[in-house]
Design a protein around this nucleic acid. Structure first.
Lengths: 338, 338
DNA sequence: TGACAGGATCGAAACGTTTAGATTAGCGTT
DNA sequence: AACGCTAATCTAAACGTTTCGATCCTGTCA
């Protein structure tokens, strides 16, 4: 900018005024300055600007796994929203690990992000303190966090699980395997509640051995399914808590020589684009990814626009049961291969 | 840092020296400074540091679509690599659009990223000039770009397409539909060459009407497939250029009332985690995502480490044909439903 | 004619670091 | 005792902006 000012024979203050439109500058000088900018190929240094202004127009976004199509979709929506608003987004993947997550968030705060969207924080993270220290707005996604009282958008997990389990019960299933996530509290609890409620509403017992938990990876789903399938009285249906885990479930079913839905019915959390073109077409609980992403972005953009003192807002969205052909009705006759 | 210095009764220079280990500071002062840092809860301002040092320890990464599992996987690998190296990564999605891409890259350069990984640039982008202006190292991924002479890691597209088409020919297919991408030159050309070579090697003609192009979206694959399937003498196999497009292909096949592989064989570019658990299990050309991501990261990290004057390096990786059950051999007897 | 308002322009401080070079203190040599 | 050497510490400039307040100019009005 100094060079531009010199070339245009004006002060840097005038150049700044012209660029930002913060003061009127005469047509004559404007022309000279614009010419100089073009000649020199001047680009404003955003770092210097950030230092002075105290804002980076950059936000941080952490997700557990970008390879999970649910998060991929949400990230995509969020990215677009902030792009439109002129913000850049720094993406971090925490791999479902608490320490990694803390590190990532520190990294982001070090970079002076203006705000933070944290997807699926684990409980017990020092997030609480980190967030209190750094004075930036935070919005939680997909999972609340004990002790962190801030904007959030989550799914009505209890209801979603209730719906899908009820659907399976309606089909005639009595023993329903349930593979859930670990290292969390609030959604785990909600989903478990939904599972139990659905069973109880149908007068069915909650069998301990039918509930397995894993750390959201494919291998966890695989192992959990293997355990469920080797039970003496194995379940006739399995509900898996996310997309990577249900892939593990399907692999386990295949490896053990069974098939879906003939021998065992499967449903899962999170829809994906190809769910209705391959067989079996999975019955899923679709999360409203578009809405989740947009709402999260809006909550944060609102804070960034200066609205700092309204109390934390919690948005609870509804899932939608997408019934396809991976769950079969259980008639009087049991599955042939059973 | 000023407050810390005051609290510890030393100069800021000493504080800086201690924090960065750039000079020895006496145990006595060290203790005082560390205490002050703890008391105040001081965190170094990375923006100020960046301004002074001229480096942000942040890189920019652009991909066409983060919802495409191929890019998702690569992004994940790259993210991890830079994470390990203490770099943050800013992610942008260009949506296969040239202008968007230019905008995104400008946004990233404005943010003073230290380097850039650009996946799948379209030709004709002003990338060339942008890159020349900004003085940061750039590595190209997945697609080269005329006029931009810089580090790159790409697939041997010609060979990959040759292999998969040859495979289809070996199965007995004679009319093979080919759905490729648009808005590119070099890989389009390479892949087309591979397609033609495979046909010619088998003494088969290249039929214009069997080649369709689309802009990499699901809908493009759908439309292209619809066109192919409504040909008078429709192809017995279709090769689709990426994952979103092959989903479109599968939907078109379904909607038109055909099934794969009974009525029509399908293969595509890019493997994905669930490819062998659902039916049909797609035959694909798997790109070595891990290697691609790592190599791209390494190339850039090497430049960032200061190696600026070795000439541009082009890495060409090999794809791998993953044969599954979405392509059936064409015997003497035609498909029953045909 | 002189005071004054208002617009255009500028000078300089500030943002929070890093770092080159100056200063100081301590200590062994001659 | 004077000297130089080293290690520890400090002073101050610099990075490239923004912005407050000062200055300058022009024209208007009493």
């Amino acid at each position: 900018m100094l060079h531009v000012a010199e070339a245009a024979r004006v002060s840097v203050a005038t150049v700044s005024a012209l660029i930002n439109g913060t003061a009127t500058v005469s047509p004559e000088l404007s022309a000279r300055i614009e010419q100089a900018i073009r000649d020199i190929g001047y680009k404003r240094n955003a770092i210097a600007r950030s230092l002075k202004m105290g804002t980076t127009r950059t936000i941080g976004l952490t997700v557990p796994h970008i390879t999970n199509p649910f998060f991929t979709a949400v990230v995509s929506v969020i990215q677009q929203a902030f792009d439109r608003a002129g913000y850049a987004v720094m993406l971090c993947c925490t791999d479902e690990d608490l320490n990694t997550q803390d590190d990532q968030i520190r990294l982001l705060l070090d970079r002076m992000v203006d705000g933070l969207i944290v997807a699926r924080v684990g409980d017990g993270a020092i997030l609480e303190r980190i967030v209190a220290d750094a004075n930036v707005p935070v919005v939680l996604m997909d999972r609340l966090c004990e002790g962190v009282d801030t904007d959030a958008v989550v799914l009505d997990n209890q209801r979603a699980v209730f719906d899908v389990i009820s659907y399976l019960i309606d089909l005639g299933h009595r023993r329903i395997g349930y593979i859930t996530g670990t290292s969390d509290i609030s959604p785990m609890h909600d989903r478990m509640t939904g599972y139990c409620e659905a069973l109880q509403a149908a007068g069915l017992p909650v069998a301990e051995e039918l509930v397995r938990s894993g750390n959201f990876h494919e291998i966890d789903g695989y192992n959990a399914t293997m355990q469920l399938l080797s039970l003496h009285d194995r379940p006739s249906a399995i509900f898996s808590a996310n997309n990577p885990m249900v892939i593990g479930t399907m692999k386990a079913i295949r490896d053990i020589g069974l098939s879906c839905p003939e021998d065992i019915s499967v449903a899962c959390f999170d829809d994906f684009p190809w769910s209705d073109v391959f067989q079996p077409q999975l019955t899923t609980v679709a999360q409203p990814v578009q809405a989740i992403g947009e709402q999260a972005a809006n909550l944060l953009l609102d804070r960034l626009a200066g609205n700092r003192d309204t109390p934390p807002r919690k948005l609870v969205l509804k899932g939608r049961l997408m019934i396809r052909n991976s769950c079969r009705p259980l008639g009087a006759v049991q599955s042939v291969s059973a």
